Amino acid sequence: MEFHSKEDIEAPIAEVFAAISDFGTLERSALRRGIELQRTGDPAHPENGLAWDLSFSFRGKPRAIKLTMASYTPPSGMALDGSGSGVDGRMEVELLALSPQRTRMSVRLKLSPTTLTGRLLVQSLKLARSNLNRRFKLRLADYARLTEERLSRTA
């Protein structure tokens, strides 16, 4: 199962990359949403094996996921691999400079089951695909808008 969306941000590519790789801010945001996390590795050098152990409740069941930095290529993007609770996933964030002050952020999330439980979970997600696609696009648009606002305040 795959989700994909693109958003344009009115900011230079280097600033957008700095914002999306601000792991401290992302971790605080996850904690506010009720996700417990434990980071391993140095966020100053994410290419050297930065990883997170996440635990949260989804659809009434506790879930645990291990996220690992798969690639980190400033300022063009990064990829994260995740596995746990019967599902493997990969999230790729690509940045493209459209102009000196405009950047396109493209995010792709791919989920694949590894167990029968994971297969049932992914199948239930497929049944709600249109709603989940809409929510994914709205969440990315909101993240892009917030990033743009934050960067315009600091400029």
Rank of each mutant, 00 (worst) to 15 (best):
E2H: 08
E2C: 01
H4G: 15
S5Q: 13
S5H: 15
E7D: 05
I9E: 04
E10K: 12
I13M: 12
E15N: 12
F17I: 03
A18I: 03
A19Q: 09
A19W: 15
D22A: 13
F23N: 04
I35V: 14
T40Q: 03
D42N: 10
D42M: 00
A44L: 04
H45N: 06
E47F: 04
N48S: 10
N48T: 04
N48M: 04
W52H: 10
F56S: 11
S57R: 14
R59Q: 15
R59C: 11
R59F: 12
G60K: 12
K61E: 13
R63C: 13
A64K: 14
I65C: 05
K66Q: 14
T68M: 15
T68Y: 08
T68V: 13
S71P: 02
S71A: 12
P74Y: 10
A79Q: 14
L80H: 08
L80M: 15
G82W: 13
G82I: 06
S85L: 09
R90D: 03
L96C: 10
A97D: 04
A97V: 01
L98M: 09
Q101W: 05
Q101I: 03
T103A: 03
M105L: 14
K110I: 01
L111R: 06
P113S: 07
T114C: 01
T114L: 00
T115Y: 05
L116H: 02
G118F: 01
V122E: 03
S130P: 05
L132V: 11
R135C: 02
R135Y: 05
K137H: 09
L140F: 06
A141G: 08
A141N: 09
Y143M: 13
L146A: 07
L146F: 00
R150C: 00
S152G: 03
R153Q: 15
